[in-house]
C-alpha cells in the first residue's frame, strides 16, 4: 500500500513539472489564445489572482495543450506501449488545430511525456501516470484558483516568458 502511494506521488510530480515547464516555455501565460481565455483570466484576476496565471488556466481550458498531451501520452502508453505515445502526439496536434492553436505546446509536451514515462517504466507503471496527471490538473484547475494562478505567474516570471 505505501509503495503505491509513493509511486503515485512521484508520478504526479513528474507530470506537473512536465506540463508546467512545456506550457510556460511555449508562451501560454503571455497572451490569451481565444477571447474566452481572456474572460477567464480577467475573472481570476478579479478574485485575487495573477493575470498571467489566469491566461495560462484559460488557455488550458480552451485548447488541448501540454496538460492534455501528458494525459493522452499516459493513456496511450497504458493501452499500446511506446508507439501509442507517438500516435497520441498526432491526435493532439489535430485537436490543437481544431481549437485555433498552432500546436507546438501540445505536440512537444506529448513527446516529452512519452519519453519520461518510458524512462520511468522500470519502477512506475503507466496507470500511475494517468492518476498522477489527474492529481496535477486538480492542483491547478480545481483546488484554489487564486493561489494556483499566483504560483503559475511567478514560475512564468522566473523563466522569463511573460
Amino acid at each position: 500500500m505505501e509503495i503505491e502511494v509513493i509511486k503515485l506521488i512521484i508520478a504526479s510530480i513528474i507530470c506537473w513539472i512536465n506540463f508546467v515547464v512545456v506550457d510556460t516555455y511555449f508562451g501560454l501565460p503571455k497572451k490569451p489564445g481565444v477571447s474566452g481565455a481572456e474572460v477567464i483570466g480577467k475573472k481570476i484576476e478579479k478574485i485575487g489572482g495573477n493575470i498571467n496565471g489566469g491566461y495560462f488556466m484559460g488557455n488550458i481550458v480552451c485548447s488541448p495543450d501540454a496538460s492534455a498531451g501528458t494525459l493522452m501520452a499516459a493513456i496511450f502508453y497504458y493501452a499500446m506501449g511506446f508507439e501509442g505515445g507517438l500516435i497520441a502526439a498526432l491526435l493532439i496536434f489535430i485537436g490543437n488545430r481544431l481549437c485555433n492553436d498552432p500546436g507546438y505546446a501540445g505536440t512537444i509536451g506529448t513527446i516529452t511525456a512519452t519519453i519520461l514515462i518510458y524512462l520511468c517504466s522500470g519502477f512506475i507503471e503507466p496507470q500511475y501516470f494517468i492518476a498522477g496527471m489527474v492529481i496535477a490538473i486538480f492542483t491547478i484547475q480545481g483546488f484554489h484558483h487564486a493561489y494556483a494562478s499566483k504560483l503559475l505567474g511567478s514560475i512564468a516570471k522566473k523563466m522569463g516568458r511573460i
Binding site: 477567464i40 480552451c62 485537436g95
Partner: peptide
Amino acid sequence: TISSNAIAHT
C-alpha cells in the same frame, strides 16, 4: 475541449 472553447468564446 472544443465545446469548452466554444462556450468560453461565447
